[in-house]
Write a protein that binds this DNA or RNA. Structure first.
Length: 805
RNA sequence: GGAAGGUUAGCUCAGUUGGGAGAGCAUCUGCCUUACAAGCAGAGGGUCAUAGGUUCGAGCCCUAUACUUUCCACCA
């Protein structure tokens, strides 16, 4: 609408874990099969079937919402183009040494049977116990007590650590312990990682099942003993009598045995944070495993710099801190997943010669020895492909026209919950592979919660189906409700009241439009007549519209969508409907008159402007109404967005109407207070120094204040007042109740100052010879016109101030 | 443990260079006034969490406290 070429790429990612779980569940429930029963290829066919059946839902929801996306440009992370980009990136990073394969400790979900990245682990506070266990020192009566929340992992203990400065244990460092239940000998080591004042000051070290222990193990060159299988049962190799038991069953059994054999010193109740799988909520088991990683340090550095330098800006700004904090502290990114649904890692193993080949294209034989190769079974983290979205969707690695035109893009809009998952990774991926940031501004919005403020979730069943809301209230109402009364980045509660109010607004706009349309005559258009034909109230609404246009544009430019919308709302409802239309009626109903024609033009002009200002928020109703207006050709989608025009700033006239409105409000209030029925007309005597204003608006007063006669009396003294004369008596309203002279004075002075500022700014500009000679003539003329306008406004303000004394 | 946010009308929330305390919903009163009862016209309702400070002036800026939400890290 503002004439820019824009692109919104709609699309979806393949949601690796979530989708695979869903299809596996379907398979199990409907056919009693597992994915292994089908085998990889046939299982993937099923997933694609599922994708084709349900994958369009999001897209359809977007369409139903009226999203103005480029639907021909729709992309999916598993489509051909995106997949090609994934391979390109993977191989490039591998060659650069930024992707490596390693035996590391990772987060393992025993239910999904896959590795998870750090970001995919959610911590929840859970009650647990803290078991204090006695570890006897070899060839001695001494012992050490360790405290643990996961006694089952002691099967994999390869040391006990104490703090080197902890004098209680100094004499034991270097000695050997006998691991209870197992009988294995393990050393006592000293490491700064241990905090003396927590627990007993002694930590059992299980490098295979704890990330910190893994680090300690590396430092002390400890063996890694992995005691759990992929399904979190105890392994046969190291499990002894506990082999095959589930981790929790093993825990119970071992605690019982420890107690029986006198190793259990005490059991404390203890509440602690437990990592769970973000998809299935199963408690994550840290364990060592062969996985693929992205080396983060070299990527994080420029990504950090891009934001700290302001090259990429977060809106609202506070989210930059979230981002920076994460980027500064992130570990290497585990990108392999033991799933089938996803981009299969393009690494090929030769069993004959042991060589591994990473390749952009599929290979069947080893480039070294010619023997057949087998491809890596693992797939990539979904976010690995989502991270490439800004360029993978533009045809990269080819140098396409789209890529040249739309990379980098301006704004990324997303929720704060995926700043780490998505935004961070798009930024470092874009910088690394394109050599340039993917976008300039990250516009963060909050989350929609239910009416009680809870996060929407499947288990609570408190989610909202947008399609159902749209069905009931309309897409425009939904959009309005989501945009209004909400500051950027803040969560909002979704409630029926809110959407009903939005629906009512749409209804109000519809009815106002009906009024305008049903009163039109042939030849009417939204083109304004010359200024001298405009009435006071015309000038008032046009001035207000002009201010509105300015405010809305400024706020949208500043990403303040909610403020902009509420301005449109109150202008439309309060100013346009409640006052202007009511004021215009007296002229409108004088069919065939010049005044009626003018009023219709102003109605059309204002309505058309409202529709265009509102269109980004409420596309459907605005399009529908706009298409019915005379002089509004084509789709509103490509109509020009209103621009502020100071030729329509009628400051003085607007003030006059504000006074009349104040008077009417005061009269109505007094009537209501005195129980004068609205149907009862009253006579009005206005004693005022604003006689001129009230003369010109007598008809409006008559109608909107339910009076039969309006009499004006010039005032020479300061005893201005409105008198209401009815059968019931005579009521006085001091003019000072209607117009707060002091406040008005302050307001006018403020206005005057602004005008003087504008005037001096323009005068300075015009006195600059360079500007006058070099700027286009139209621009110079425009400035001169503005100067004239402002000067007039200044005179008017001075006059008004003089009136106030 | 670290960080960010919140505390404003009965409820849900706006309030962006410090000067008017607001909206929607709810409540009360009166109205089917020829666009609209999903509406119109009135009305009531708030020591802007607390305590200090800066300022002519603070919901807004500073300091501290209380309560609360979320994120990150995670002590075995």
């Amino acid at each position: 609408m503002q004439g820019y070429s824009t692109l919104w790429v709609p699309g979806t990612d393949h949601a690796g874990i979530a989708t695979q779980i869903k299809v596996e569940e379907q398979l199990r429930v409907n056919e009693g099969l597992t994915r292994y029963d089908l085998g990889r290829d046939r299982f993937l066919e099923r997933v694609w079937d599922w994708k084709h059946q349900y994958g369009n839902r999001i897209i359809n929801q977007l369409k139903k919402l009226g999203a103005s996306a480029d639907w021909d440009h729709e992309r999916f992370t598993m489509d051909e183009g995106c997949s090609r980009a994934v391979r390109e990136v993977f191989v490039n990073l591998y060659i650069k040494g930024l992707i490596y394969r390693g035996y590391r400790i990772i987060n393992w979900c025993p239910a999904c049977r896959t590795a998870l990245s750090d970001a995919e682990v959610e911590y929840t506070e859970q009650p647990g116990a803290f078991w204090h266990i006695r570890y006897p020192v070899k060839d001695s009566d001494e012992y050490i007590v360790v405290a643990t929340t996961r006694p089952e992992t002691m099967l994999g203990d390869t040391a006990v650590a104490v703090n080197p400065s902890d004098e209680r244990y100094t004499h034991l460092v270097g000695k050997t312990l006998i691991l209870p239940l197992v009988g294995r000998e393990i050393p006592i080591i000293a490491d700064d990682y241990v905090e003396s004042d927590f627990g007993t000051g002694c930590v059992k070290i299980t490098p295979a099942h704890d990330p910190n222990d893994f680090e300690v193990g590396k430092r002390h060159d400890l063996p890694i003993i992995k005691v759990m299988n992929d399904d979190a049962t105890i392994s046969a190799e190291y499990g002894g009598k506990y082999a095959g038991l589930d981790r929790y069953a093993a825990r119970r059994a071992m605690v019982a045995d420890l107690e029986e054999q006198g190793f259990l010193v005490k059991t404390e109740q203890y509440s602690h944070n437990v990592g769970t799988c973000y998809r299935c909520k199963t408690t994550v088991e840290p364990l060592t495993s062969d996985q693929w990683f992205v080396k983060m340090e070299p990527l994080a550095k420029p990504a950090l710099e891009a934001v700290t330098s302001g090259n990429i800006r977060f809106e609202p700004e506070r989210f930059a801190k979230t981002y920076i904090n994460w980027m500064e502290n992130c570990h290497d990114w585990c990108i392999s997943r033991q799933l089938w649904w996803g981009h299969r890692i393009p690494a090929f193993y030769c069993d004959a010669c042991g060589k591994m080949t990473v390749s952009k294209t599929d290979i069947t034989t080893c480039p070294d020895c010619g023997a057949p190769v087998r491809q890596e079974e693992d797939v990539l983290d979904t976010w690995f492909s989502s991270a490439l979205w800004p360029f993978s969707t533009m045809g990269w690695p080819d140098k396409t026209a789209d890529l040249a035109r739309y990379y980098p893009t301006n704004v990324l809009v997303t929720g704060y919950d995926i700043i780490f998952f998505w935004v961070a990774r798009m930024i470092f991926s874009g910088l690394e592979h394109m050599g340039e940031k993917p976008f300039s501004t990250v516009f963060i919005h909050g989350l929609v919660r239910d009416a009680q403020g809870r996060k929407m979730s499947k288990s609570l069943g408190n989610g909202i189906d947008p399609l159902q809301i749209i069905d009931e209230y309309g897409a425009d109402a939904l959009r309005f409700a989501l945009a209004t009364g909400n500051a950027p980045g803040n969560d909002m509660r979704f409630s029926d009241e809110k959407i009903e109010s939005a629906r009512n607004f749409a209804n109000k706009l519809w009815n106002a439009s009906r009024f305008v349309l049903m009163n039109l005559e042939d030849g009417d258009s939204p083109i304004l007549p010359p200024e001298e034909k405009l009435s006071l109230e015309d000038k008032w609404i046009l001035s207000k519209l002009n201010i509105l246009t300015k405010t809305v544009t400024e706020n949208i430019d500043n990403y303040e969508l909610g403020i902009a919308l509420s301005e449109i709302y109150s202008f439309t409802w309060d100013s346009f409907c409640d006052w202007y239309i009511e004021m215009a009626k007296s002229r409108i109903f004088e069919k065939g008159s010049e005044g009626a024609k003018t009023a219709r033009s102003v109605l059309l002009y204002t309505l058309s402007s409202i529709l265009r200002l509102l269109h980004p928020y409420m596309p459907f109703i605005t399009e529908e109404i706009y298409s019915a207006l005379p002089g509004c050709e084509g789709s509103i989608m490509v109509a020009e967005y209103p621009k502020a025009d100071d030729a329509l700033a009628f400051t003085e006239e607007a003030l006059d109407i504000e006074r009349v409105i104040a008077a009417i409000v005061a009269i109505r209030a007094r009537r209501a207070e005195m129980n004068i029925a609205p149907s009862k007309n009253a006579k009005l005597y206005i004693v005022t120094k604003y006689a001129d204003t009230f003369t010109r608006t007598a008809k409006i007063l008559e109608k909107l204040a339910s009076t039969s006669e309006v009499h004006l009396v010039d005032a020479y003294e300061a005893d201005d007042a409105i008198q209401i004369v009815t059968d019931a008596g005579r009521f006085f309203i001091p003019m000072s109740d209607v117009i707060d002279f002091e406040k008005e004075k302050i307001r006018l002075q403020g206005e005057l100052e602004r005008m003087l500022g504008e005037i001096s700014r323009i005068e300075k500009k015009l006195s600059n010879e360079g500007f006058v000679s070099k700027a286009p003539a139209a621009v110079v003329e425009g400035e001169k016109a503005k100067l004239k306008k402002y000067t007039e406004a200044k005179e008017a303000l001075l006059l008004a101030l003089a009136k106030l004394g």
